[in-house]
C-alpha cells in the first residue's frame, strides 16, 4: 500500500513546481557563491588558509536558510494539493489507512529534500573543482555539510507538515513558516534548543553531528505526534 500511495503522491505533484524547487534550492545556494567567488575570488582565496573549507563554510551559510524555506514551501504545496478542493475526504474514503496517507506525504517531501541534498553535494563539489581550490579535497566535510542540514531540518519538516495538513486555515502554516525562516536567518543568536537553529549546524560544542542526531530523533518524534494527531481528527 505504501508504494502505491507514494506513486500516487508523485503523480499528484506533477506540474506543481515541486521538482523545480528541488533543483532550484541547491542551485541557488551554490549560485550565490558563483557570484561571490566570481566577483572577488582572489581576495577570498587570500583570506583563507584552507580554500576548500573556507568555500564550504560560505556555502553552508545559506544552506540552512534555503532548506527551511524549501520545507515551508514544499509542505504547504503538498498540503494545498489536497486542500484546494478538499480532496482529503475523497482520499480517506478510499480503502487506505490514514497513517499511511500521512506517511506517504512525509516520505515524498523527505525524498525531494534528500535529492536536494545530493544536488547540493554535486553542485558545490563541481564548482569547488572549477575554482581549483587545491588537491586536498575534504570529502567528509563536503558530505557532512550537504546531508547534516537535511537531517537537522527534519523537526521543522515534521512540524510544518503537521500544521499544514490539520489546519483549516492555511494562513497558520504560512505564518509559522515565515517565523521559522526568520528564526533560521538569525540562527547564530538562537539558543541551542530551538529546532530552527539546528540546520545551521551551529552549536555550543562545535560538533555538527549533534545537530544531525538531534534532528533525526526529534524529527521522528514530531512526525509520530503529527501522524497520530492527523489520524485522530475528523477529516476536513
Amino acid at each position: 500500500m505504501m508504494m502505491r500511495l507514494l506513486r500516487v503522491d508523485f503523480l499528484k505533484i506533477k506540474r506543481k513546481g515541486l521538482w523545480l524547487l528541488t533543483v532550484l534550492g541547491p542551485f541557488g545556494v551554490v549560485a550565490l557563491q558563483m557570484v561571490n567567488y566570481g566577483v572577488r575570488k582572489d581576495y577570498l582565496l587570500q583570506q583563507s588558509e584552507n580554500d576548500w573549507l573556507y568555500y564550504i563554510e560560505y556555502i553552508s551559510n545559506f544552506t540552512h536558510l534555503a532548506i527551511v524555506l524549501g520545507i515551508v514551501i514544499l509542505t504547504s504545496f503538498i498540503a494545498s494539493i489536497e486542500n484546494e478542493t478538499n480532496a482529503w475526504k475523497q482520499l480517506i474514503a478510499l480503502p487506505v489507512s490514514k497513517l499511511s496517507v500521512y506517511l506517504s506525504k512525509f516520505t515524498v517531501i523527505t525524498i525531494l529534500l534528500f535529492i536536494s541534498s545530493v544536488l547540493l553535494l554535486l553542485f558545490s563539489y563541481s564548482y569547488g573543482l572549477y575554482l581549483d581550490l587545491g588537491e586536498e579535497i575534504p570529502y567528509i566535510t563536503l558530505l557532512k555539510y550537504s546531508f547534516f542540514p537535511f537531517l537537522a531540518a527534519l523537526p521543522v519538516l515534521a512540524l510544518q507538515l503537521w500544521i499544514a495538513t490539520v489546519s483549516h486555515n492555511q494562513a497558520i502554516p504560512v505564518t509559522v513558516g515565515v517565523i521559522g525562516v526568520i528564526l533560521a536567518y538569525s540562527a547564530f543568536t538562537l539558543p541551542d534548543w530551538m529546532i530552527w537553529k539546528w540546520p545551521s549546524l551551529i552549536n555550543g560544542w562545535d560538533k555538527p553531528y549533534i545537530n544531525a542526531l538531534l534532528g533525526l530523533s526529534v524529527g521522528i518524534l514530531l512526525y509520530v505526534i503529527g501522524m497520530f494527531d492527523f489520524k485522530r481528527r475528523d477529516v476536513k
Binding site: M1, R4, L5, R7, V8, L11, K12, K14, R15, K16, I81, E84, T85, N86, A87, W88, K89, Q90, L91, A93, L94, P95, V96
Partner: peptide, 27 residues
C-alpha cells in the same frame, strides 16, 4: 463502497484521466 461527499473533489492541475488514475492506483 464508492462515494461522493458534498462538492466534488479533484486535482485541477491534472487531467480527468490522471485524476482517476490517482485513485485507481490506490484501489
Amino acid at each position: 463502497v464508492g462515494s461522493l461527499v458534498e462538492n466534488p473533489s479533484y486535482y485541477p492541475h491534472l487531467t480527468a484521466g490522471e485524476n482517476l488514475e490517482a485513485l485507481r492506483k490506490i484501489i
